[in-house]
């Protein structure tokens, strides 16, 4: 494998990692708010809180990793995406800032507040929507280059059915992934009531997720036929993804092996996400930036991959420790551990 293929694979793995952990986090914020306004707060709040408290700072790091790696391996993307994404990017930053800090403020510092929860729950849905614009733009057709200037064609973006289908997909899949994970977590905590509520969320959002995925398929066909043809060549990945979805829904529906069910949800998104990404190659931003023209210094590519492996050797044991202490420690999960 060439350096650029390794590079983009590493980055895609990080983006996938962010997709999963951030979805759990964003969805949890929304469910936390939703159950509060519908008067069912006490049933699921403890579960969500105990999961989120030790991991909230870790989530952001995945995103930063992806972005820095992207610039390192493919600096041209910084030029095109940086210039065009000033407004949506800045809005996403503000939302992330509000969300991150106010989570800490309300959890550690002050009493419960409706406003905090609204900001927290609301931003959890807006961030995925604003971040998904990057995926939309990378399909090409929304950027205009003239001389020394690149501009984002806002009108075209806002009136495009493809852009909206991606936004809808990001929203529903956040809620679906999160509900599937929290069902498992609540079940581990032996909290039957919370499990039932969250299970209903998971089932409820599974249908819209699959519908939205289909819709994105059709929208891509109309917007970027080249990419769509490539996806057809990899159609087995999307079929496997669908099978994983069916298994996961079956398990959740029948309240069986919820941990395995969440694993299948992760596989479902892994196959769809990597299938989508592989079909996008060799372009990063169609048709302006491809992976081949970007890596100008192989030494740096090798150093980056080396740093990445060394980092993983450090991070994986630490993450396992974190999970053993908080996710898979029966006393902690059930809230028996004193703080």
């Amino acid at each position: 494998m060439s350096i650029e293929v390794i590079g983009i694979t590493v980055l895609w793995v990080f983006l996938y990692g962010y997709l999963i952990v951030a979805s759990i986090d964003f969805g949890a914020g929304f469910f936390s708010y939703y159950t509060m306004i519908t008067g069912r707060k006490n049933m699921v709040h403890g579960i969500i809180e105990r999961y989120l408290s030790p991991v909230w700072e870790v989530t952001n790091v995945f995103l930063i990793f992806f972005m820095i790696g992207m610039v390192g391996f493919f600096p041209d993307t910084a030029y095109y995406l940086g210039t065009t994404l000033l407004i949506p990017g800045s809005i996403a930053i503000v939302l992330i800032a509000i969300r991150g800090s106010y989570y800490a403020f309300s959890t550690y510092g002050s009493k419960e507040s409706h406003l905090y929860k609204l900001l927290y729950g609301g931003s959890g849905l807006l961030i995925p929507a604003s971040l998904s614009i990057v995926l939309t733009i990378s399909e090409g057709g929304y950027i205009e280059e003239s001389g020394n200037n690149v501009t984002l064609l806002f009108y075209k973006l806002f009136t495009s059915s493809y852009a909206w289908s991606v936004v809808v997909l990001s929203l529903v899949s956040v809620l679906y992934i999160s509900a599937a994970f929290l069902t498992y977590y609540a079940h581990k905590a032996k909290d039957t009531k919370a499990t039932e509520i969250l299970r209903r969320f998971a089932i409820g959002w599974s249908g819209p997720t699959i519908l939205a995925s289909l819709f994105v398929f059709f929208a891509i066909q109309r917007h970027n036929p080249v990419h769509f043809d490539n996806m057809l060549k990899l159609s087995w990945m999307f079929v496997v993804s669908l099978i994983c979805f069916i298994i996961a829904t079956y398990l959740i529906w029948n309240r069986k092996r919820l941990g395995v069910a969440f694993l299948f949800v992760m596989l479902q998104f892994a196959f769809a996400f990597f299938g989508y990404g592989a079909a996008h190659l060799p372009y990063i931003i169609y048709p302006m930036v491809s992976i081949h023209e970007s890596v100008t210094s192989p030494e740096m590519g090798i150093a980056l991959i080396g740093a990445f492996i060394a980092g993983l050797c450090l991070l994986i044991p630490s993450l396992i420790l974190l999970m053993r202490l908080f996710l898979f420690d029966a006393n902690y999960v059930q809230g028996l551990q004193k703080k």
Binding site: F65, I68, G69, V71, G72, F73, P75, D76, A78, Y79, G82, T296, S297, M300, A303, L304, A307, F308, G311
Partner: peptide
């Protein structure tokens, strides 16, 4: 970033 991004990406990454 287009020009220096590669050079500074290693320390940024670390």
């Amino acid at each position: 970033m287009q020009i220096a991004g590669q050079a500074i990406s290693l320390p940024l990454f670390m």
